[in-house]
Design a protein around this nucleic acid. Structure first.
Lengths: 343, 343
DNA sequence: TTGTATGCGTTATCAC
DNA sequence: GTGATAACGCATACAA
């Protein structure tokens, strides 16, 4: 940018106002101990010259860049884009920018991206989930950089967090199905490697099922990437089992959408012949037919709190090491007793 | 960050390698005219010391920050988050970071955000659509900053663009309905102020309808914010018209989802009693029941090309002023002849 | 091909 | 309270 354009510099403002550059800097940064008179002179000069501070120079001298980094698996998942959207809006209130990097669920790429963001000079960073390579932690400590994880609720001295319990609501969903009379329950899950949220949900499902004295055999669990089409594919696979499962626990709403659509296409009535659950409570889950039984995750709230907390950490304030928000099961119309309830 | 930690500096590397700081810098920046021998010495020293360049200092000295800015109305729209996702991944290949700002469809806020991003030192920026305040253009010119608009195809010497025609496919959708025999067509549109895409689509709808000798009265157009719930609300309003419209043209897929869900809830069969169209072709549109007739917008392709083009501009290469990609109408199952076709 | 020296635009540490 | 001035860490014109 402006490789040859002569910008207005702090020095110009100082000359215009008849004060020192230090004073101009003080006024601009709301430093204490500045007289009203000086402040007015400087502000007038700034206005007259249309001065705009040079962010990079400021960053070099102050060692703060005015931006944080967010590392997310993907923005293709509405639940993450919603979180990022709310995070960015809140950061703006603190006059803080957002640098984004995605890593397609590859923890190695996460670390690489983190490294470049740190090199870029970010003042802090937020990661999704609890699963990370040790190298990530090392980077934060090495650079004494404020950081935060979110979207999970695991207690861990190394990883401060703002999130919610993924296992408990999953457990409740499975219990709900069991209470309805389901005995043949299948699961569609995202790959659990490097994804503690998926792992926790699967664990919740399994724990509830086995606690009820039922089984969750391996062939009743389909692991598949995130996506509507993938949900449909997994559905097809599970419907080939005999006896056919009467209920499907899906690791997230989008997988559930795929399953529901595939069921409709196959002429399988939901919830009469098959119950389906999701996780996330995307807007659409409330409106689709049948409305989806799922878990409401507080994406916006997480975004806001992450902004508040990370900014506080950057300013050196102490904040809670762990904040657990509520993720509530929402019972709707996609779950009902199995066809032959009462057997 | 590392407020007191003593980092390894370029100077340390130079000393370790027994060369000058300039030489180290040259090796690190892949400058021409460096001997193999020197390169090896420097690289070895870098490895030994674990040296990582300081991004901010580099930015100040080189006047390039290694990041571009993207200004989007919202990330809550999957079509934008998909574009940003693909943009970010492509930029990574160029070793370029992404700064994001959202402006909730307020052009004034767009300019404000642009100003702070420029102050932040971005090397270039991309905006969505063709509608912007003159102040935005002025900022780009003033700072001699490479920039680009996308998601539209308007010819304009001021605004280089990578996008697609929004009006023509909209026109085709309306024609398709008319060809099917529809005579009472209604429209759900996003607010057109500051949103040339919505305006172009509405224009396409209207032009086709009026060209066919039909009317599109004001009460057949509902303007409403983006969202599933909003689509449902608009649907309810339009269904109160008499005679009831037999077809609904929606400005985007999400509004169409809302309409379809509301119709299902109201017991109105799609497409037998009512035809519905969207615009965007989100993944779900292909899988939902009935599959949605819509327009496939090349979100990923736009993201990739924007990255390629903007990086080229930053490097001083000349690129096409305007790239028009294809946005194709996709006929599916949500459109059919009206109930009383043949009247 | 390599080294020297200066500039990049602020902030922050001293004195006064 | 205010003003000099030395960092901040690297890139680059210029010299060698």
């Amino acid at each position: 940018m402006n490789r040859d354009v002569k910008r207005t510099l702090l020095e110009d403002v100082a000359r215009e106002a008849g004060v020192s550059t230090a004073s101009v800097s003080r006024v601009l940064n709301a430093a204490p101990h500045v007289s009203e008179r000086l402040r007015h002179k400087v502000e007038a000069a700034v206005d007259r010259l249309g001065y705009v501070p040079h962010g990079t120079a400021r960053a070099l001298a102050s060692r703060r860049i005015g931006a944080i980094g967010a590392l997310v698996p993907t923005l293709d998942n509405p639940v993450f884009s919603a979180m990022i959207d709310s995070l960015e809006r809140r950061l703006k209130q603190y006059d803080c920018r957002l640098l984004i990097a995605t890593y397609r669920y590859s923890l190695a790429e996460e670390v690489e991206s983190l490294r470049t963001l740190i090199q870029q000079g970010i003042d802090g960073a937020v990661l999704i989930g609890h699963d990370h390579l040790p190298a990530a932690l090392q980077l934060f400590q090495q650079h004494e950089l404020p950081y935060l994880t979110c979207w999970h609720s695991q207690e861990d001295p190394d990883w401060p967090s703002i999130g919610f319990d993924n296992a408990a609501p999953a457990h409740q969903l499975a219990e709900h199905l069991i209470d309805l009379g389901h005995r043949h329950i299948a699961v569609i899950t995202a790959p659990v490697e490097g994804n503690d949220r998926a792992r926790a949900r699967l664990h919740g499902f399994r724990h509830a099922i086995e606690t009820a004295g039922l089984a969750l055999p391996d062939d009743h669990i389909v692991t598949i990437d995130y996506g509507i089409e993938e949900g449909a594919t997994a559905f097809a696979e599970l419907m080939r089992l005999t006896p056919r499962p009467t209920a499907l626990l899906c690791g997230n709403d989008v997988l559930a959408f795929g399953a529901v659509f595939a069921a409709q296409r196959a002429g399988i009535a939901i919830p009469e012949q098959l119950s389906v659950t999701g996780f996330d409570d995307l807007t659409q889950s409330r409106f689709m037919q049948p409305a989806l039984t799922t878990v409401a995750t507080p994406a916006d709230e997480v975004g806001r709190r992450v902004a508040d907390d990370l900014v506080a950490r950057i300013q050196g304030r102490t904040t809670p090491h762990r904040q657990v928000l509520e993720a509530r099961v929402v019972l709707r119309d996609s779950t009902a007793p199995p066809p032959s309830a009462g057997d």
